[in-house]
Design a protein around this nucleic acid. Structure first.
Lengths: 159, 159
DNA sequence: ATACATGCAAACATTTTGCTTTGGC
DNA sequence: GCCAAAGCAAAATGTTTGCATGTAT
């Protein structure tokens, strides 16, 4: 869990990073970072801008534009979870996760494993000539609830 | 490369599989399978329905509805490549690929490697209670063309 | 004071659905 | 003949942009 002061310093860090690149620290930016940090889960533009914190204070278009900038500057990561809309998640140190998505109901859980793909990225950069490679890995399947009426878990341990 | 007779038997196989589930073999279905098999690359609904083969013979809505069915029945796989639209690819035996996508220009190349994730799927099924798990893995980065003006390749060997 | 950022509203692209007609079985 | 599939066209959804105004620096 994230304490209030952690949050402040996180917002500060991100704002600093962005300021160096000519962006300004605005109320909407701080609120968006706060919202994403507290969720710490993939969220759509709608999810975010409809949250109490943001709905009162800024327009969806602003959220959209902020997310685009944050993505460009490597602060958030975009995910395609086979929903009609795009998901975003804040990039936090030591917090990369892969996801397991139910193709039936759309439920998203985190997969808690040492991701076996990281090590390939450097290799792939050399082989392909691409720069700044990162990956996105999702597992899709039918969740217990959709398959029968059994167990339930939001966080799956594996390995 | 796919020969004409390979294609026929592929369409036949798929049509059989579908017929057993109560679906009918139609002209549009055959043409769509043909188009996807010959491309053997991720394609959007627009890509497919604007192809000469399909544009003359069927409506985009039909392509859409077919793709939904084919996905349900495990014949095609859906990919979210961070484009605004959804990509689809035909599932062929021994043909799983992961992709490397340029975040700048959207160019899609295949990553030719022994995918290190396959083996985790069974383990994850046990741990999570999900059924029929499969995965989607993409790498994103800046391609050589977008980064400077160097090399170019549509297929990257690695490992 | 000067941009960059925002709000609001309109434009866009793509997906999704309704309804009638066609065609596979 | 019956029911799934196709065609056409309209609606829904989510993204993106234009422009006037507000605000961080």
């Amino acid at each position: 869990m994230l304490s209030h002061s952690d949050l402040d310093s996180l917002s500060g860090d991100i704002a600093d990073r962005l300021r160096n690149r000519g962006l300004r620290r605005t109320r909407a930016l701080d609120l968006l970072i706060e919202e994403m940090a507290l969720r710490d889960k993939p969220a759509t533009i709608a999810d975010l801008s409809q949250s109490p914190r943001l709905s009162e204070n800024c327009d969806p278009a602003t959220v959209y534009r902020l997310l685009m900038k944050l993505e460009t500057h490597g602060v958030v990561r975009r995910l395609g979870l086979h929903d009609r809309s795009t998901y975003f998640i804040l990039i936090l140190p030591n917090r990369h996760h892969d996801y397991l998505v139910c193709t039936q109901c759309g439920r998203i859980s985190e997969v808690d494993m040492a991701c076996p793909v990281h090590t390939l990225e450097r290799k792939l950069e050399k082989a392909s000539g691409f720069h700044h490679i990162y990956h996105e890995l999702e597992f899709f399947g039918i969740c217990p609830d959709c398959h029968t009426g059994r167990e339930q878990s939001g966080h799956t341990h594996c390995c």
